[in-house]
Simulated assay, not measured.
Amino acid sequence: MTTTTDDYFMAGGGPNITALPKVSLHDHLDGGLRPQTIVELADAVGLELPETDSDALGQWFEEQSNSGSLVEYLKTFDITTGVMQTSDGLVRVAREFVQDLADDGVIYGEIRWAPEQHLTRGLSLDETVEAVQEGIEAGIADVAAQGGSIRIGQLVSAMRHADRALEIAELAVRHRGNGVVGFDIAGPEAGFAPSRHRAAFDYLASKFFPATVHAGEADGLQSITSALIDGRALRLGHGVRLAEDIQVEREDDEGTYVTLGALSQWVKDREIVLETSPSSNLQTGAIEAWGDDILDHPFDLLYQLGFRVTVNTDNRLMSGTSLSRELAILSDAFGYDLVDLETFQLNAAAGAFLPLEDREDLADAISAGFEQA
Rank of each mutant, 00 (worst) to 15 (best):
A289C: 02
N281E: 14
I329L: 15
G148T: 03
L295K: 14
V248P: 05
M10N: 07
Q99V: 14
E326R: 05
I329T: 14
V143I: 12
V98L: 07
A193Y: 13
I136M: 09
G261L: 09
R95H: 11
L41Q: 12
V240E: 10
E371C: 04
V143R: 06
A190S: 12
L327N: 11
H161E: 14
L236N: 07
G89H: 02
D7M: 10
P355Y: 07
G285Y: 09
W266S: 13
R325P: 02
T310K: 02
A233T: 05
E72T: 11
R308V: 12
L330W: 06
I140S: 03
T80D: 00
R160T: 10
F192R: 07
G109D: 00
E167Y: 00
T256R: 15
I150E: 01
M1S: 14
A172P: 08
Y336F: 15
D88M: 04
D43F: 03
P50G: 00
E271M: 10
L362E: 04
E96N: 03
N347V: 14
V311A: 03
S206M: 03
E342D: 11
S223T: 11
I366C: 02
D314R: 01
G237I: 12
L20V: 10
A218W: 06
M1W: 09
I329A: 10
Q372R: 13
V93D: 04
E130F: 05
G179T: 04
L274P: 11
E254R: 12
P35N: 01
L155A: 11
D78A: 14
M10Q: 12
R250H: 14
S264H: 09
V45E: 08
D219R: 06
I79V: 13
G177P: 06
G255P: 13
G261V: 11
I111W: 01
T80M: 00
Q133I: 03
V71A: 12
A365T: 08
G237F: 10
V213I: 15
